[in-house]
């Protein structure tokens, strides 16, 4: 233990000196989170202003890293887990109840989880260029029946969280008919990418007519680029709900700071930063307080969502339906 401290001290000497008397809250987050245009910097500044502490992000692979580190993890708080993979996180026993009052939540689904606290949400949706496509498919069924020269790009459910949401979406809409639905979709799928960013890049480069993304994606183009040509196709069958979560580590060295951060999540100050930095919907903010550009976005009437246990048990079936249909 002493040896480890000395090594750590030597290597991180400069950082340690600066932070010697300020308590540090270590927050694990996804890769994009703490980039200059991500939500991280704003949240850090706002929280540090009220906590007299130093909030430090460690970004990278979230869950694999926590599970690898186990009890040894330095994280006090993890931000950015998604609901479809929380079962593994919960089963690890590494997380503690958040203790936050969730009455302010404005999610389209009921949320009562005592460990994972939502901070933003969205829905899966296919995005298209409304200058090139006048009449997008009006339903999921219409998408399946669309001519095969409609070019789609999607993400791999085995490497991407949005890809996983898509197969669960198809599973929720078609149930046992999921494989047949995928078989109808297969000829239209130009390619399947590892992650969301490759897909979206292909779409904006004109490689595809529609891309699997989120209902909120057009807001970025509208607000940041004043580009009104991107729209989400809204389907009456419903859209799969995706929520991003925060959780506190049971073994945190700073339980008070961590609690304070958990209490901060659902405040208006935090929530109002979400739309234009995370480009998603705030988990606890009434629509009238959303920025312009978000308020006008068409939103699905029906929201589909599997609980974490359902998601865990359906996952292999949903992925296999996708895999076998697309392997033919």
């Amino acid at each position: 233990m002493l040896g480890r401290t000395i090594v750590a001290g030597l290597v991180a000497a400069s950082a340690t000196v600066a932070a010697a008397d300020t308590p540090v809250l270590t927050v694990y987050a996804g890769d994009y989170f703490n980039s200059e245009w991500g939500p991280g910097p704003g949240i850090e500044a706002a929280f540090e202003a009220r906590c007299d502490c130093d909030l430090q992000y460690k970004t990278g692979d979230l869950l694999p890293r926590i599970l690898l580190e186990g009890e040894r993890t330095e994280a006090d708080v993890v931000i950015g887990l998604t609901s479809d993979i929380t079962k593994k996180a919960r089963d690890s026993g590494l997380f503690a109840p958040h203790g936050a009052d969730m009455s302010a939540l404005t999610l389209p689904v009921d949320w009562t989880d005592k460990i994972f606290l939502p901070f933003n949400y969205g829905h899966t949706a296919f995005i298209y260029n409304n200058e090139l496509i006048d009449t997008p498919p009006a339903s999921f069924e219409a998408l399946l029946d669309a001519p095969d020269d409609l070019r789609l790009v999607i993400q791999d459910p085995r490497s991407s969280i949005s890809g996983l949401a898509l197969v669960l979406w198809v599973q929720a809409v078609y149930g046992d008919g999921a494989k047949a639905a995928w078989e109808k979709l297969a000829p239209k799928i130009v390619t399947v990418t590892k992650g969301w960013s490759e897909s979206y890049g292909l779409f904006t480069d004109g490689e595809a007519d529609m891309v699997l993304s989120y209902t909120t994606s057009p807001a970025y183009h509208i607000i940041a680029e004043e580009d009104l040509t991107k729209s989400a196709a809204i389907f009456p069958e419903g859209h799969y709900f995706m929520v991003e979560l925060v959780a506190k580590l049971a073994g945190t060295d700073n339980p008070d700071l961590a609690d304070q951060f958990m209490q901060f999540i659902l405040t208006e100050e935090f929530q109002s930063m979400i739309p234009t930095s995370n480009w998603s919907l705030p988990a606890a903010l009434p629509v009238e307080k959303w920025p312009e550009g978000f308020r006008e976005l068409p939103m699905p009437e029906k929201v589909l969502f599997y609980s974490e246990d359902e998601a865990a048990s359906l996952r292999d079936t949903a992925i296999e339906a996708w895999r076998s249909a697309l392997s033919q």
Partner: peptide, 9 residues
Amino acid sequence: YQLMAAYRI
């Protein structure tokens, strides 16, 4: 990758 993930094409 981060730029791409942040829509900054």
